[in-house]
Design a binder for these strands. Sequence first.
DNA 1: AGGCGTGACTCAGAAAATTTGGA
DNA 2: GTCCAAATTTTCTGAGTCACGCC
Length: 849
Amino acid sequence: MNYSSDEDDKPLVFKRSSTSDKFKHSAQQKAAAVVRQEKPSPKTVAKQNSDSEDSEDDKPLSSRISTVPKANSNHVKVGPSMSASQRSKTQVKNEDSDDEKPLSSKFTPKSYVSASIRKHDDSDDDKPLSSKVKQNGSASRDNQSRKPNIGLNKRPPNEENSLGQSSIKKPKLSDSSAPINRKPVSVKPESETDDDENDHVPISQRMKNKAPSGSKSASIKQKSIKVNSSSFKKTIKKSKKIEKNSKYSKPSKVPPGSGEGQKWTSLVHNGVIFPPPYKPHGVKMLYKGKPVDLTPEQEEVATMFAVMLDTDYMTKPVFKENFMGDWRKILGRNHTIQNLDDCDFRPIYEWHQREKEKKKQMSTEEKKAVKEEKMKLEEKYMWAIVDGVKEKVGNFRVEPPGLFRGRGEHPKMGKLKKRIRPSDITINIGKGSPIPECPIPGQSWKEVRHDNTVTWLAYWNDPINPKDFKYVFLAASSSLKGQSDKEKYEKARSLKASIRKAYTRDFGNKDVTKRQVAVATYLIDKLALRAGNEKDDDEADTVGCCTLKVENVEPEPPNILKFDFLGKDSIRYQNEVEVELPVFKAIQQFRTGKKDGDDLFDKLDTSTLNAHLKELMPGLTAKVFRTYNASFTLDDMNDMPTENVVWESNLVFDVLLTSNSLCPNMNVDIALSYKFPESMTTSLNRDMKGGNVAENLVVYNQANKEVAIICNHQRTVSKSHSAQMTRLNEKIEELKGVVEELETDLARAKKGKPPLKGSDGKTKRNMNPEALHKKIVQTNAKIEKMERDKETKEDLKTVALGTSKINYLDPRITVAWCKRREVPIEKVFNKSLLAKFAWAMDVEPSFRF
DNA sequence: AGGCGTGACTCAGAAAATTTGGA
DNA sequence: GTCCAAATTTTCTGAGTCACGCC
């Protein structure tokens, strides 16, 4: 069968399945039917179905599927649950039904709120892309009239209401359905607009026309450092239309700049700062039990190794061999030290520990003084002036010498990373600007350039791999970085459903390369896999989609694929996914006749894959799917209702406390105000808003976690994790004991008897049954809360939420959502994220990814 | 052939949780 | 014995680092 057709039977896969369970449930309850478009005419319906596929297609596959990497226990997989037929049915139905109903669970309802809110949206339409992905989405567009109506979903047209508030409640509609795609081609042009610009314009009018992301002008001048964006907006906005119809025709790379590839007009900075020279400590290590004299240079390298005695690099032979190889070069051929095994670095190690301890013991004032001293030295390097605007420099400190710490089984781990000198560094600076003074007397820069088509301020060759470079760039909060960040998200937003159809059609293509491209694209889309460049033998052996080996993908009939491989940073990816039959068959076929270590996609590499992707959409590359998947998932879940949460005291209590621990900036007062159950009821009425904030934050974190799981962002379990868990368990047990005791006393009190002595032997005060009962309830609530905390903790012990927040989630989704729900943005973004995302701060509340 | 985005980890300092000390 | 706050310990975070990967 060819999937290409539209069959209704679409594979389930496309559907989304799982949102978080929690959401799911709620969603389910609430909605029953989904609505997709407004009413469809019959034909539409039919069509729709087909579209529906698309519509569903809109969703990121990953979301649809539940895949879940096993690594995290959490989620587990999933699968598409509905059958195709079911699904189609549902859809249809939905269409008719009204909005309110939810969709089956599957579809997650996405947004209602937004829908309603989106005012402008109604109009939209046309979106070019709209079809794009998510349907609705577009926020920006909305403003204007552009929005299509997307179809789909109904959105109430007028809702506009204020943003947020009221609207929030509305039932959702899901939009998922998508709109149909309208034409494909036009991708982006119009819409784009984004927000920014319009600040001055009345909202309603704002449209944006701006340019989409693309280029921006270089002029970024203004910038304000502050968070506020307003200034930013402007800057950014500038529009360029670039993309526009032409679509991305542009070479993908050229960014903004005012001119061809020009990134700035004037650039002033002070270069880089070097680490202080090595200060010999004179502590002698032992060789065959005897102290050895080392020159400062030899001692420096020995110290680098000694300091790592307590790491597990010591268990890696490669590390030791590489270290010894490089150290021996410095020791010289005839040195006493010939064998690493006869070396005893402990004296140096212990000296280092003492130094560390000393540092730790310094008084606060001393520490402060040291810090200020350092600041004074570094201050001049921290800023650059780009086109007249003061911008923070990212990494102006030259990397100090050390032993290379490769991740995973890196063949070069342990090699000496030599000290970088000025003569290794190339400086890039504005033509008329003063050339940074070389900080080390008597030395000079390797080269000084005036290249305004690049954004780096300086670079040097990586001593470990001379072919690689280490660049000094502006900080993430700079306009230059902000612009390209925004462009990245705009590109992802413009992904269209039609792309899915296009590759689906090739699952059975006779041309093997085309088939492989189709299947690989499917995996990238569905699982948010990385492209997978080829790697050299002198790098760790990790893979991405194009470099998957036969042994990394195990097909299990009827249609399950088991993935198990080491990806970037040697992080393991394990997942079992149900795929469409043609994909499954294709994978089986790609595997036949090959050995475990052979390439699964033997006809592919990232450049051929990306070349094909670019045919589908200008500027499209494999990594866009990751961004798309992540942001889509967040946008989708953010519209989950929270109103169905039962506002019972216990639950509220939990939610508040939990959110407090999950949300960094949560207002402590809010949580505290709920700390005492007695006051809870009243507080609830009084502080409903606070409660909602906390509740919303739980939803947000849940969505964030979902994304982290999709992207496989892991973290190592903290050393103290198990101790922490044990402690929690002990406390829970202790509380349980308390409850039992209380219950005994309660029973006795009811009979008029005094309480028994406590386990500690003390006598307790007489309490009346009501008081005892109350206490039991309170304690039980506390236990439940702790159990929940425990779960959350266990759940997140291997999941890192930060990476996706920083790199994959369009901040406008978060900002708009916060505006709609009246959640202070500071509760979600810390100071550095606020600075980094200054460009997104004034997005319309109706923005949808 | 570079150029730049992504990503896990580290560490110091902040915040929260506990303990201690005194009234 | 209770209460409160200071002191101390534990946990969490933000910012920085530098390795890794994509195009």
